[in-house]
Design a protein around this nucleic acid. Sequence first.
DNA 1: TTGAAAGCGTTACCAT
DNA 2: ATGGTAACGCTTTCAA
Lengths: 325, 325
Amino acid sequence: MTQKLTQRITINDVASAAGVSRQTVSRALNDKGEIDRETKQRVLDAARDLGYRPSRFARGLVRPDTTSIGLVIPDLLNPFFTEVAAAALEAARARGWHVVVYDTADSLEEERGTLQVIGTQVDAVVGYFSLSEAELDEHTRGMPVVLIGRQSPRFSSIRIEGAAGVRSAVDHLVSAGHRRIGMLDYANRADPSDRHAWFCAAMATHGLATDAVTTAAQSVAGGAEALVELLDRHPDVTAVFTFNDIIAIGALRTVRRLGRELAVIGFDGLQLGTVVDPELTSVALDTRRIGALAVEQAARLLAGAEPLAGDDLVVQAVLLLRESA
Amino acid sequence: MTQKLTQRITINDVASAAGVSRQTVSRALNDKGEIDRETKQRVLDAARDLGYRPSRFARGLVRPDTTSIGLVIPDLLNPFFTEVAAAALEAARARGWHVVVYDTADSLEEERGTLQVIGTQVDAVVGYFSLSEAELDEHTRGMPVVLIGRQSPRFSSIRIEGAAGVRSAVDHLVSAGHRRIGMLDYANRADPSDRHAWFCAAMATHGLATDAVTTAAQSVAGGAEALVELLDRHPDVTAVFTFNDIIAIGALRTVRRLGRELAVIGFDGLQLGTVVDPELTSVALDTRRIGALAVEQAARLLAGAEPLAGDDLVVQAVLLLRESA
DNA sequence: TTGAAAGCGTTACCAT
DNA sequence: ATGGTAACGCTTTCAA
């Protein structure tokens, strides 16, 4: 005898249906003692018949606070973000938190939409945003916000520091005898990336030229094409560093198809890199640490405790040697 | 002048700090008109100073219902589940729903824990469960539940139907001349899998033997090892069908390393299959449809509308030809 | 064992 | 422009 929920069914409806008071219903539903077995059963039946579901809001208002955070990710299908998300989920679970996940599909519009509705749902927000600080501030209204991979004077942020890791990568290539090392950068940005800057700095320490740089689309195909182009322009290149692992995997494919000998080092250190053959050497980010750190910082902000600062918020990339270089 | 939140700061605290009434605070914070600019500013300042954040519960109690669902996934890092999760997120977003994601880490214990806390947080639950129906029922207490890939008389469920797809795969291999076709099944289950049954049925239609079956661990390495073993025992095998794409990718690696010629067909049709070389041919599941269907069914259950039933809840696997077979 | 009343924090309606 | 009062749905005291 389920019925349509045109109007919300409340505890009062159940109470009158069962011929008891609200409190008795509450007791029956929450397995409190001090209630007649028979009464309890009658209430339970009534509740089931009516399709009654307690309002989580009303309940939350009265019971000890559960905390939940919003996790904002540009694209859950991108393995890097998947790893960060999984890590954040794990860290949140350890605290007994709930995580509401939003995939903004790399779109500013979706980001805005998310921000507008998120405020009423969560106690803090963690993740990736491309919106301006002003816009973020306007919608989050003092709610704790932890940005990942983006500096901000206004909000807490997890900083990604890759200079040392990229230097190790270049050192590694150089000591293997490589001198002409190219790079596949990410195309979709106006400026060259941080990673490009780190690459140039590392090359400079060896007095090596950094003219062999091409941009690639953010996909396996993009990496594959970009490497063809790069080798076309700079046939003497014997090794490449790439913006990320996806692009590197594409590059690896080109290497294989061309039957060429070429060292490849990616960036991110995804588990995905172990799926390809040869397994991908990469400048690795500890995605679990990123997720855990973001959640930890949110916890401190929420508790009004001393927030992490400075180096505690930095995630250092390190060279992860596998097979491709 | 932020202060520790030993006690929750309410709208009343802000009101008295700003020397106005609750309602005025509410107006100021929610950008309602009809308020003096100066008063508004004073309220906003007070709120910021106190670190005031509205209770989402109190707000939810009063404002038009937002609906949110729980999405329960055994392992977000498994690309198959990632795809389903992304699809569910997208479908939920289209409805303006919030999705609370739980990764149960393939553990019954975590599943139980999730179930216990989920009831107070969401309006419906969608996802993968290994718990008994009785246990599920006990904790969900009449909340709509949509199971994926698991039949249940008690709950709605999305059924995965792969017989036809696997038959296509076997047909494809046979018409390419293969007669000795092996299978790498998943090891962690007591019984052979559905997929194994589908494989045997398909082979039977060609009068082919199904003795060349080994089990593999659910990983790339597992697939690689299992294929070595299989070829060891059945050197005449010229093609293999695998429990899923991960295992297939491992098999592909062995094929490459052994320098053998062997057709491989996986199951799932993951995007991941385009990353390897050769790209993986697979019996593909439409993960977007799975996610969308689960959410759609949850919507109907929530609205008290006629739920989907029968074939509408079935997702058919289809052969996705790429390069590995 | 059961019920009446109070209160959780917020917004809406109606005065002022 | 601002404040008082009621209401949202539930749980928790406290009496009966």
